[in-house]
Design a protein around this nucleic acid. Structure first.
Lengths: 257, 257
DNA sequence: CGCCTGGTTGAGAATCATCAACATCTGTGG
DNA sequence: CCACAGATGTTGATGATTCTCAACCAGGCG
């Protein structure tokens, strides 16, 4: 009903891309994401070495799992196209969403410690995934110092991100949490040369609530309120950020409403 | 007032220890913590190599900083004696405690990503710290594969821990959060051969509240309630777990009170 | 001795969860 | 192409947990 003329965003809308993101003949050197993904710190020859250990399989359908909690840990995964949610089941059986992963992002590193996946991961939409066997990545890292360093940095970033999320859950109101998530997704889209203002949320309201420590109802109410305030345009999962400044103001609690 | 006959716990009460934990002539080979700390996966010769890069300075007094947010990142740190809290300051100036670190635990890894500390760390009591220059640790890891692997595991563990905490903040009541923290500290004491039932909390109520996303008042009330229920003995920072099973029941929400 | 920090306890208020009804969307099969 | 069922999302009314504000207490240190 609302004015979303932008088509649903996929990774294939770049005219110059000779290969589709779901094409599993791609390699790191021709991947559009190689400036933000694992190869970031490597020269061409090194990328080729990395490329040789990476496994690319057919795209995963919505709902299919990359891995499941408590399974043996073998690999970490990079999202090439689509999107993935990671979640874990607590002792008393409730689900906690621990992260959303977009193209160029790496997940599964929480399994390294115990050699067993600490969480599950499933595709939120049809997704292409690069599987990186960790044993081999470790060996390669011994020969390519910049790869070792970059992987350390990647894990460190995950720690920092989790800590920021922790603060969000610990200190911030429902409005602030939702605003922060939207800004995070917006920024990550921008990094991938997509629109920072108009995008489609890959996850359900339930997942958002679960991730942010809120109920579905609260999330829904916040979206409605933001729309009424003229900050957002909301049409189901299609979001447009109308007033970024206002959204930022909400996110860091400096709004005065 | 209450019946705490146990002396305040320090790291020096083992009669067999020939060296005091605050002695900065110690090395990894004679450190009581070498089975739970970084050297864990190494043989004696390798520990010696590790030892050569580690810097041990005079003990830090309560309140002194190991490092500060936004400073250049140089090293990660292992706690040898005492205890440390890590915290970060958000954009709008509020403090968030992100972790408590006890002897044998490693902190500072969130600084690797940006080559700049993402948080600050200060001693909660007089503490001895091992400083591990990260550049050198990386180099050493290239020559000692098991060290590389162990450090990957350490970072992975930090990610898992943060995610567990996230779930705690997102899904659990004040009672559950406090119970979980107490059980965590108890378990970590046990790992160091200390009493799992009687210990002194190194952090203030304020820090506990901050860490758990609660106000001081709420934390205080929970302690009082636990004491009235006969689950805990509380005498200021001196804690005794009277009924572990009950505490566990509270922590995973299976209590029926 | 008295101040100051840290901790406890109480009363009232606010945010968000819960319960419930209803609307909308998706996809399936007739 | 339509009809329907189940899943997903929205909105409203009520209530519980936790926060806020405030007073008070205890201990450490100058």
């Amino acid at each position: 009903m609302s004015a979303h003329s932008a088509p649903a965003q996929t990774e294939i809308h770049t005219p110059a891309a000779s290969r589709c993101a779901h094409d599993f003949q791609v390699n790191c050197n021709n991947c559009r994401l190689n400036t933000i993904c694992l190869p970031l710190a490597l020269d061409i020859a090194q990328v080729e070495q990395l490329d040789r250990i990476i496994q690319r399989s057919r795209p995963l359908q919505k709902g299919e799992h990359l891995y499941r909690q408590d399974e043996d840990f073998q690999s970490v995964f990079a999202v090439r196209a689509g999107s993935v949610k990671a979640y874990s089941i607590t002792d008393n059986g409730q689900e906690q969403v621990t992260g959303f992963y977009l193209p160029g992002e790496v997940l599964g590193m929480d399994g390294i410690a115990k050699n067993r996946h600490a969480s599950s991961a499933r595709a939120m939409e049809t997704s292409s995934i690069c599987e990186i066997p960790f044993e081999k990545l470790g060996e390669l890292s011994l020969r390519i110092p910049s790869l070792q360093k970059h992987f350390f940095q990647l894990m460190s970033q995950e720690i920092s991100d989790d800590q920021r999320l922790l603060t969000l859950l610990s200190k911030n109101s429902a409005d602030q949490r939702v605003a922060a998530l939207l800004l995070s997704i917006s920024a990550r889209n921008k990094r991938r040369q997509l629109s920072a203002a108009n995008f489609r949320l890959p996850m359900s309201r339930t997942d958002i609530g679960n991730y942010l420590g809120l109920t579905v109802e609260t999330v829904s109410r916040v979206f409605s309120r933001f729309q009424k305030m003229g900050v957002l345009g909301v049409d189901n999962k299609e979001i447009s950020i109308v007033d970024v400044e206002a959204l930022r103001a909400v996110a860091d609690g400096s709004e005065n409403a």
